[in-house]
Structures are given as C-alpha cells and as structure tokens.
Amino acid sequence: MLRLLAELIPGLLGGYLLGRFKPGWVKPLATPLVRYGVPISLMGLLLKGGLNSSLLSTAATAAAAIFGMLLVLRRWRRESDQWLSPTLQLGSCVGNTAYFGIPVALALLPPEALSISIGYDFGATLLSWGLGPIWLAGSSQEAHPHRWRVLIHHLSSSPASRGLLGALLVMATPWQTTITSALWMPSRVVIVLALIVVGMRLAGLSEERSEATHNTAAPIAPSQALNAALGCKLLLFPALVLGLTLVLPISAFARQALVLQAAAPTAISVLLMAETEQADSSAAAQLIWRSTLLAIVTVPIWAVLLKTLGERLGT
C-alpha cells in the first residue's frame, strides 16, 4: 500500500498544481490520453497476462457483473429527483482496476491471480468504453431509433477494442516478447498522465466550490447522491461480485482477485468520458477523489474478509 501511495499522490498533487495555473489544459490532455493512451496501456496488460480462455471468461464475468449493477441502479433511480445521475451510476460500478486494483492484487495475492485481475480489467474496460458514452447520454439515447448501431459504433471505436486489436496483431508477430517489454514503460506514462488529469480536474472543482461559497444561487453539491454512489462502489458492488463468485466453481485466489477488482475506487476513465461527452464531470471527479481515499481503508478490509472466508470454506 505504501508503494501504491507513492505512485498515486505525486501524480494527483502535480496535476492539482498544474490545474490551478493552467485549467484550460484539461481537455487537450484528456483527449489524446483517451484516444492513444488507454489502448497502449491495455495492450501492455493483455500481452503480459496472455489472451486465453480463462482471461476471456473472467472478462465476460466482469462485464456481466457491471452491466447487471448498472441495470439495478437505473431501476433504483428515482426519476422525480434524479438522485443518481448516469455519471454516478457508471462510477458506482466501473473501478480503477488498471491503476489501483491490479497493483493491489500484485501486493496482496499470489502471482497466479494476475491473469484474473487483467481479465477483469479487460472486460470492465471494454464494457465501460463501449457502453459508457451511451449511458452518460441518459434517456435521450434510449429513444434513438438506431441505438444498436450507436452501440456497435462505440464498441468498435472504443479504446478497449483498439487495445485488443493491437494485442492480437502483436501476438501474430515473432517479436511479441520484445514488444511486450517495450510497452511497459509507455503504460507507466499513461498511468501518470491519467492521475495528472484527475488532479487537474480536482483543482477546477475546488475553484468551483470556492465560487459557490460566494454565490448563494450556485447549485448545492448532491452529497446524498455521492454518498450513495460511494456505498455502491466500495461496499455493495464488491458484495454483489462476492455472491457471484460463491456460485461459480472457482478457486479462492480467483475469488479474491475478482472481489478486490470490484472493490477498487471509481475509475479515472469515468472522468475522462464525462469530460469528452459533456456529462457531469464535477460529480465524477468528486466520486473518484472520495472513493480513492476511502478505498485505502476498505480494500485491505475486503482482503482480510476474503482471506478469512477462504480459510472457512477450505479453498
């Protein structure tokens, strides 16, 4: 956890300071990060974990769990007061697996769990970047006469799809090992840049709060909705995945890997999508910030509970 904090805090702090002085740099940095950075990062993870049936089944499990949670949240949403916006719904189940969950798995689980964690990240990334832009658009997309074409378009053009295609092309060459090693450093750069974008957005959010304190007509932050989203992301969704893993015939370390990925804080990609889709980016930034701080406490608790459960089940 100390290593994780050492990687997390400098990027957030540097981005915060940069955002205070250069607030207009957020979107110019976020756009190429989404277009090029995410595919490169995912390519590196897929090549490292290896594309096999186990990874694909784990990806399908992750995608099914996230989509099921989204449907539950949409049904739960109260249309009269718009309690949980599409942004908060997405942030309640799409976790920061690549930059938080996988490092946690490496620190707390055996090496065999890496492929499970990467499979979860791939499934979650593919679903979130494919469905996320449509989901953030809200009910207007539901009435779209060609919504299935829109969905297919987003899936085919998503960073996750490009990352998968790139990984498949690399695996077809005799230089797979060399390219996999070469992609690791760019993947690390993507992590730093993503954290900087979050820090820059948080700087803008702090300025908005400062202006709101001097403007009585400014909208009040929906604290109840944020608290509900936090509870869903850090407690309810991991519990849902835990219940799912108890039904599936999987090993104890696979169960631990899946639940720890589900318990990761809200993904940075939710903020990036909110920025590019003109959605509620302020709520996304608040949810990322709060869930990341709280996950430093809740994720180790989940790890202890999973270890105790594994001992009692004898698996």
Rank of each mutant, 00 (worst) to 15 (best):
L8K: 03
R20M: 12
F67Q: 01
G91P: 10
R77W: 03
D121H: 14
E112I: 08
A105N: 02
L17G: 07
L46G: 03
M43H: 06
G14V: 11
L45P: 06
L33K: 06
G132C: 02
P32W: 05
L114S: 07
K48H: 14
T97H: 03
F122S: 08
L12S: 10
E112G: 15
L131I: 06
S115I: 14
W76K: 09
L55I: 06
R74L: 02
V26G: 03
L45I: 13
L47H: 09
L71E: 05
G15K: 10
P10H: 13
L127M: 13
T97G: 03
P39G: 08
L17N: 04
G24F: 09
L109G: 02
A63K: 01
K22W: 13
G101A: 05
L88H: 05
W129V: 01
T58I: 12
L55R: 06
W76Q: 09
G37P: 10
M43A: 12
S53C: 11
R75H: 12
S54H: 10
G68M: 06
R75F: 11
V34D: 00
A59D: 05
G44W: 00
G37D: 07
A63M: 12
Y120W: 10
K22R: 15
L17D: 03
L114P: 00
G24P: 07
R78D: 10
R20Q: 15
V38T: 07
G123S: 09
S85I: 09
L47M: 15
T61I: 01
A62N: 04
L90R: 00
W25P: 13
V94T: 15
V38R: 02
G11R: 12
A64P: 08
Y99A: 01
A60M: 03
A64Q: 07
P39F: 09
V94H: 14
L88I: 04
L18Q: 12
V104H: 02
P23S: 06
R77F: 01
L90V: 09
A65C: 15
R78T: 07
